[in-house]
């Protein structure tokens, strides 16, 4: 009970309503024993950052399918550093061309998962990055 619990925020920034992937993932993370805060769709970067702070999560998963990732993801990581949570493991997913990976990683996204990534892969990656 008192071992460190992995708390993950699964967030849908931007305006797209495609939440299938985010919800499937949220469920898989729960089944893997994590506490998952799912934000619902249409979150502003400020809302996402605020949720991460208040909920004191160790990991943030951003899912976006509208193509606005290069604009919104860096805004969120910037807000997190500004608010003193640079340490949160931030991961991205959705419809993101591989050529954008480099830019996103420079902006503080630790890794981008592309179409076809499995939930098992993502769970394993989080566990490896956040040992409990």
């Amino acid at each position: 009970m008192d071992k460190k619990m992995i708390r993950v925020c699964v967030a849908k920034p931007g305006l797209d309503g495609h939440d299938r992937g985010a919800k499937v993932l949220a469920r898989a993370l729960k089944d893997a024993g994590m506490e998952v805060i799912y934000t619902g769709i249409r979150q502003t970067p400020e809302q996402v950052a605020e949720t991460c702070i208040q909920e004191d999560v160790n990991c943030l998963l951003l899912s976006l399918l509208s193509g606005a990732h290069n604009h919104l993801f860096p805004k969120i990581t910037a807000l997190l550093s500004e608010k003193g949570r640079k340490d949160i493991l931030v991961l991205g997913g959705g419809v993101i061309p591989e050529e954008d990976d480099e830019f996103l990683m420079k902006s503080g996204i630790k890794r981008v998962f592309h179409t076809g990534a499995t939930t098992d892969e993502i769970v394993a990656y989080i566990r490896e990055q956040i040992p409990s």
Binding site: K30, E35, Y38, G40
Partner: peptide, 21 residues
């Protein structure tokens, strides 16, 4: 908390978000 996995879905957060800041 799920008895099986020990995980939990804390999913209702969205509707409790008012003005950020």
């Amino acid at each position: 908390t799920s008895i099986l996995s020990g995980g939990a879905l804390l999913g209702d957060r969205i509707r409790m978000q008012t003005n950020t800041g």
